[in-house]
Simulated scan of single mutants.
Amino acid sequence: MVSSATVRILCVAGTRPEAIKLAPILLAAAERPNLDCRLCATGQHDALFDEALRDFGLSPDVRLAAPPHDPSPDVMVSRFADTIEPMLMDERPDIVLVQGDTNSAYAGALAAYRLGIPIGHVEAGLRSHDIALPWPEERNRVMIDRLADLLFAPTPESAANIEFERDVVKGRCLITGNTGIDALLTMRSRLLVGGPVKGRRLILLTCHRRESIGSGIEAICAAALRLADRGDVDILCPVHPNPAVAETVHNFLGRHSAISLTGALPYRDAVMAMVRAHVILTDSGGVQEEAPALGTPVLVLREVTERPEGIASGNLLLVGTDPDRIVAETNRLLDEPALHAAMARPAFPFGLGDASAKILDAIEQYFSSAPSDDHPLPFARTWIMDSAR
């Protein structure tokens, strides 16, 4: 076990949301002399990943060359894991942190597990309870939780999901809040945000989910066109770089004067857009967490959500991808001030901004405690941490 020596933490990540949600941990760890926290970029998003980190004054410590792209999530995970494993042998961290449910996160956890390195899962326990929605994210987070030694659940509901799976999930679970709220409040404090914007109201639209590609994205775009025709709104749509999404969005929405299509927004600009929006239409998991804290109503363009806490707080409403439902519910928020006000009350179901501190406290405690029946060290840990030295 690691005693009073510095604990080496290696975060493995590859996408923009992971960069945003791990940034507060990296910043907080830099203030603790007994922690050495580094970041490995898998290359899954590359430019977007680096841009998100720059908003926090950070950059990767280790950068891997992304393996050739393959549309199959299983092939992508396998290729990433094979690339990550030799890097872990070089770095020899005491613990690997992964965040969320991406292919990079699953691959990082899988590679660490093969080598017997303890795994911490940031944002553990989220469940849609439908393995295909979203795919492959639901599969990824279920499998990461089964491999993890420390499970950092953002809410009591996510912790309850872990407890329900105790026959296969063996790690220690702690309720910490979501580090995305840490990042959001940090960035919000840096922005100069004025009062309500006069004139046409802003609708922020984001869509990219794999299960919606094709008819689902087309239906969302059809709803956006009908809303733009109202004449009293502007729609801002940052377009996801996935060609299967971008081509559809540009073909449907690229010629309407009330719709602005942009590339992915830098994180600070994305936060500003969420603050200024009258309503957000999104299938993004991160936005479902962030918008309640900002008091911006969200219509979720999905059939199920693994973030029911925002539904319970009254800030989110599931509407799916049916154009009639999307238009009807958006019109209600635009035309019924009382309904909008009810959904616009700021709420913090995903934490108060102190998740990073709680996660680092838990890691320090983990490595200062002797192994016990309810706190075993992973079976192969001595192989890499001792025999390989």
Rank of each mutant, 00 (worst) to 15 (best):
L204K: 03
L333W: 01
G314E: 02
A23N: 10
D61I: 02
M343D: 01
H278Y: 12
A23W: 09
T6L: 09
I9S: 06
L333G: 00
L339S: 14
S387L: 14
A291Y: 05
L10I: 11
E123W: 11
N251D: 15
K170S: 14
E165Y: 11
G216Q: 06
P67Y: 00
D61P: 05
L192P: 05
D101L: 02
R188C: 02
F379R: 15
R302F: 06
S128W: 02
R92M: 11
M89Y: 00
H375L: 15
K21Q: 11
D335V: 01
A312F: 02
A160W: 06
E157C: 10
A224T: 11
S72C: 13
L110G: 00
R210N: 11
A148V: 05
F348A: 12
R79D: 09
C221R: 08
P68A: 06
N140W: 01
V169A: 03
R166W: 09
L236N: 04
N251H: 14
G216A: 04
L299D: 03
I20W: 01
E329C: 10
S212K: 01
T382Y: 12
S257N: 12
T206F: 06
P297H: 10
S4G: 12
N315Y: 05
R32N: 09
H375M: 13
Y267D: 01
P346C: 07
K21S: 04
G353C: 01
D322S: 09
P238V: 09
Q365W: 09
A132E: 11
A341T: 08
C207V: 15
A244T: 14
V245H: 09
L301Y: 10
L174P: 01
E309V: 14
M143L: 15
T42A: 02
I95K: 07
R141Y: 07
V77M: 06
I84R: 10
E85S: 07
L35N: 09
E157A: 15
R268S: 15
V239T: 11
A246G: 04
V279P: 01
E137A: 03
A29S: 13
L333K: 00
K21Y: 09
M274E: 13
F164T: 15
T155E: 02
L10Q: 08
R16P: 00
L202E: 12
S212Q: 09
S158V: 11
P308R: 10
L360G: 08
